[in-house]
Design a binder for these strands. Structure first.
Lengths: 208, 208, 208, 208
DNA sequence: GATGAATGAGATTTCATTCAT
DNA sequence: TATGAATGAAATCTCATTCAT
């Protein structure tokens, strides 16, 4: 009768499913998590979940979708903010590793899980590719801005450097997902900034 | 009675299983590949494989083990070779992306598959961690050599930079596993070397 | 929602599984009976049974449990009834051999099957041991009652005699399980009572 | 070339198979013992055993056969010996419970295993039935002898009593197979003799 | 809409037996 | 004759999905 309330109710239920599914997929992985596990964690019945998600695979897709939207939100707010290009790049990387709602390790694991799953699930793969492309565009744009405003030297191949920056972050996430040592993001970030900005080469120092 | 022949024969059979398993795990993923698939691809009977591998999981472990040993071989030959530190780092990265026996894309996918699987399979995870630690040690050592012989500036945090170098490579592999565009490793490598050696920052140019 | 109906329904389904399993275990034995056999006999689907019993072994345990409970019921009603000690002992033995719901032969076979299985299934073994201990206690108690009220001579070792009484019954069951000749329980029972009460020795006749 | 030697050799090999099979069947049960287990315990190869036994089932049959022959030997020597009927009965029972070559517990278990298996293996069942019939005949004969020579009162039903005597022994074996408490055969035997000879009834004392 | 019992295809694994060497 | 790799039927168990209530 009051579609608004019903709709909100349904939305809340959907979120509860996504919450438990996300947690379980992180902890146990997609394939090791059964629909029953999700049901139990959510406290509902078997039939219920199929009112919200067409299949187990669709559930994973939705988990990814939600995560993507969240990240997008963070990203946008950063880009529209103030600060140097370098500080913006830094903040973008923070999305991964500085905790927002989830421990970073879990976020990394979810990421790995999704990436692997995407190899065999086209819709997920497409969304991931989109994400990559969008982020690549944004980064390249930022780098060009940096070139324009004199922060960044103009010889660099902005597209490639954008790819590389994304890669470092993904690679770190991958490693931290697997390793159990605590991740000292602050330290690594300093090294990353240092490397990114100045390189490791000594010859340019000589040229001073 | 004649152990030599028997042993060689068994070894060959084992390799055949590993070959088909590796291919299938790459293409369809570990979970989507059934033992039946492997059997069929190898052209044997159901029971046969269990004479070589205790379980499906053990099969994956062996696939990983073999890959690791292969990489180790490449790595050692590179380290013991001649050349500047930079060229050695370059060659190490080539292991991933310049085809040896396998198309690079497939190698990347296998890597992703294994990393994800490792989250839920302790033995694989342990081997992966070892690999990371060993590679990290080697890289840090190379960097220190570079500092010593004046190739690399001494202010850098060698351990962190080593982590970052591994991360870029892993990150690129991850992306290329997911993306379907062909990977232009030569181009990316140039950018990577440029980034790594000189950084992106312009301020040091100013300081000339 | 309506737990009463659901519960009764589930209970009935469970009983149906137990019925067919019991019959099959008797006829073909535990190991020669496949889950498929049970499914087919019950007229359900493969997965269904696992909603009621964790495993094939658990199914056997439940069959045993149910049988035990049934016997316990018979036993209690006998003990609380009227009559001489001898008549009570007789009635207890009747539980095995005088048909209640099952042909005696089948009961004997099930018993043998369970005893043998128990050698390799701890939970079943424990339940069997408990049954033995309880019955032993009851029998020894009855015998002591008999001594007290003058039915039984006081020199006997009640515990040992209790063991022996149980043994005769088990031994007869064992034999009847194997033999195919019809079992003439009435006849054997007379001999058993005669043996038990008077012994076979003639010397006490002499001592009259 | 020398058939005698070959034959003896084969016989010895056969015995080794039977030895390990017997031990394994006792410990793990027929169904839980694999041909591989037997092979390994014997230290031969898979194909070899099939030169001696047609099938796993035939192996069990042979184990039983050998045991039967052994028991028969014991039995005959007892019957042909000296002593009262009672002492002969006692010695017959000792075959089961007083160790000869095997711990009594294991003998009991093997017995139970065989009895259960016999339910589903006709040849074994037939042999067991024969054993029972033969023993029954012998016991009944002994009892009649006892009646004749005045040891045993003439009112008893010798056939039934023979059945009962066998049953006690089988029943005790069954219980001891299942129970883990050590079996105090000496004690139980005394009670058995007491029960068998004098019965439990007090009325005949009164009649003194 | 919610529930959860039922479904049944399919997965992994075992193992008695065969047979080429 | 001995060997042990291969065979493949069959067994147990799982689990995403459906559907009657």
């Amino acid at each position: 009768m009051s579609p608004k309330v019903t709709h909100e109710y349904k939305e809340a239920a959907r979120e509860r499913f996504l919450d438990s599914a996300e947690k379980l997929f992180q902890r146990k992985g997609y394939y090791e998590t059964s629909i029953d596990d999700v049901i139990q964690a959510t406290g509902t019945s078997k039939g219920a979940i199929y009112g919200y998600f067409e299949s187990k695979e669709a559930l994973l897709e939705s988990v990814q979708e939600r995560q993507y939207v969240k990240n997008l939100g963070y990203g946008k707010s950063i880009l529209s903010g103030q600060g140097s290009i370098a500080s913006k790049l830094e903040k973008l990387a923070d999305i991964y590793f500085a905790s927002h709602d989830l421990p970073a390790r879990q976020r990394c694991r979810m990421n790995l899980e999704l990436s692997a799953a995407s190899l065999h699930m086209k819709p997920i793969q497409n969304k991931l590719k989109n994400q990559y492309d969008q982020l690549q565009t944004v980064l390249a744009f930022l780098l060009k801005e940096g070139v324009k405003n004199g922060e960044i030297r103009k010889e660099i191949d902005t597209e490639s450097i954008a790819s590389l920056l994304m890669a470092v972050v993904d690679g770190l996430a991958l490693r931290w997902a697997i390793t159990d040592g605590d991740l000292d993001w602050k330290n690594i970030k300093d090294a990353l900034l240092d490397l990114t900005l100045k390189g490791i080469s000594v010859d340019r120092h000589r040229s001073r």
